[in-house]
Design a protein around this nucleic acid. Structure first.
Lengths: 196, 196, 196, 196
DNA sequence: CATGAATGAGACTTCATTCAT
DNA sequence: CATGAATGAAGTCTCATTCAT
């Protein structure tokens, strides 16, 4: 589908050069369509960008949500969630760069796309919080402030993948994620289990 | 000094609209100078921006570094560091918005300013890591991966102040920071002390 | 073709006002295109100018070269060459003004166009020299320094058409050229033939 | 005198970069005065330029006129005149470059300076013509069209010094001038004398 | 639907000129 | 007179958007 192709080309360009350093002409060239064609699918550059943002956020949501929504034990879900970020970086380097690089560059219209992205962020964090709460209730986790722990974990992960996306190297990423897992799950939430 | 005034006006505008959505005319109007005057102080829009970034980063560095470099016990330094972010947000809302919103929007020239900002970020993180290590050696902290813990704490703080800067409210911020302090210091690093 | 129209409009303006006193807006107005359209055909004002210079030089070359390269006797070729300048002025008043008025106004980029113009100038002068040499060898011309004679003839012609181009008047020009022909050919190079 | 110093600095700059590529700030820097000071001596950049042009033309006039106005025999005066161009180039490279490079770049105001320069050009040519006429009347010169001969000689000299001024080399210039002298005086005007 | 030439508002930057000190 | 910071009009160029084909 044409729309798909345009979005893919846009992602490549936006993620490496930023919204304002990519022109519709650039996108036309990269996607091998005419400029006018872009306007048959998107009413404006900003809308195109917003849709791109939305789509990518959605994709990430669809990768992460099932993990958190599953039936496994709380600690297992969290571990899987953390480790999943390895594949997430792998498959979405461009989007991550984009998302971070434009984070907050809000000209009204970006928001349309960002709204969805923020929604997703909030939803995921909320679920993380619930899982931690649930783990605490079952006495599997230590009694921490669930919201703060969820935010911190999310922030740590985001900060980590952000840095990793600069020069992607799978082994390093897996190691880093393992350390985060160890810190947040084994040390912070379940200290007894590992005798630390 | 005029340069100061220009930088202040720029900060106001850049932080609320982003680099590319602010024109030199805008800055001239906001700072109540003529366009040409701006160019008597800065060779280009990008240099102006870079200098702004540098300056702000420096200011933050000068606020935070002494805390980490002091002679107090490790946990005290970390607690003070965390709590200092309250004043930091208070005094630098605009810069924080700016720094985050442009983070990674690197048109070559931004880098000049960002280089300093990143340097500072790295330096602070490194010091955090050293402090945690030192606390571990003295058996005051649990044996965690110091680097990961430092990064996580930094990320949590950054994520938190970023969100807080949107609608600044001192009480909420202090509460949030207290929770972060509790999570990272009392629960993660010094669990015995509080019998948790 | 649009490019043609733009170049024509540019020539009119540049020749009467000089490179720096004509703005792209002026050219847009004169050529009845939008400014942006100019940039669809030329990457910069300087390139436009350079191309204009090149093109005109080329046109003149194509008018004069065949005369010098022909098979006629040396004196005939020179006479035809001199007289051809009448039509040359007629058809290229604007370019002549331009070429002379900008001669040496070299902001790097002009050179691109000027390189071709100078090449042509050099080529024509070289050919003039060869023809004079050849005429001398055949004892049709007096033994003069061929290079100096060629340069002097070229200079005299250029100086003359330059002045003529200010207030074009065909009769005067033909008279002037006849005098130059008489001076250089009949008097300087072939004095015997006319018993002077 | 300050005015003198400003004009000297201007000449250096204008001759190497052209009128439009030199700013009043540049002139201020080069002359070591403040911008405002320039305006105490010259009402505008264009007037400054015009005065510069006038002055230089005057200087050249004062060097050449006495030669032509002297009491020597016609051929002697012409020979001296031609040879004098060696010193002329030597002492006025900058002005020659300037004069040629701006020749015709006429924004109304240049004219003020150019008027004097053209006046001088005309006067000198007229005198040349008179001298040739006089030589013809005395049967020392062949009967050529005096005006055309004068113009041609002037054009040849101008074209020659123009080229020489690019990379000044005294020996080459003297050689070139000798050839011009030979061509115009010995060959064109006084052929019998040398049996050519 | 697809095309891409044309458009022109607007961005950055320069620089002749002024004027308060 | 000398200064030079301040000015703002004007120039070059970009690029989102349109529309006739």
């Amino acid at each position: 589908m044409h729309k798909e192709a345009i979005l893919e080309a846009s992602l490549r360009l936006f993620s490496s050069k930023g919204f304002h350093n990519v022109s519709m002409q650039d996108i036309a060239a990269e996607s091998e369509f005419a400029v006018g064609t872009l306007y048959n699918f998107f009413p404006s550059k900003e809308q195109l960008f917003a849709e791109l943002l939305s789509d990518c956020a959605e994709k990430i949501y669809e990768m992460l949500w099932p993990i958190l929504a599953g039936d496994e034990r709380e600690d297992v879900k969290l571990r899987t969630f953390i480790r999943a970020h390895s594949r997430l970086v792998e498959e979405n380097v461009d989007f991550i760069k984009l998302y971070v690089s434009e984070q907050g560059n809000l000209t009204a219209a970006h928001n349309i796309g960002n709204v969805r992205a923020d929604e997703i962020k909030t939803t995921l964090r909320g679920k993380l919080e619930d899982i931690i709460k649930s783990g605490i209730e079952k006495k599997n986790f230590r009694s921490v402030d669930a919201r703060t722990a969820a935010h911190s974990l999310a922030a740590a992960l985001q900060s980590f993948i952000l840095e990793s996306s600069e020069d992607f190297e799978k082994r390093k990423i897996d190691e880093g994620l393992a350390k985060i897992e160890h810190l947040f799950i084994d040390t912070l939430l379940m200290p007894e289990k590992q005798g630390q």
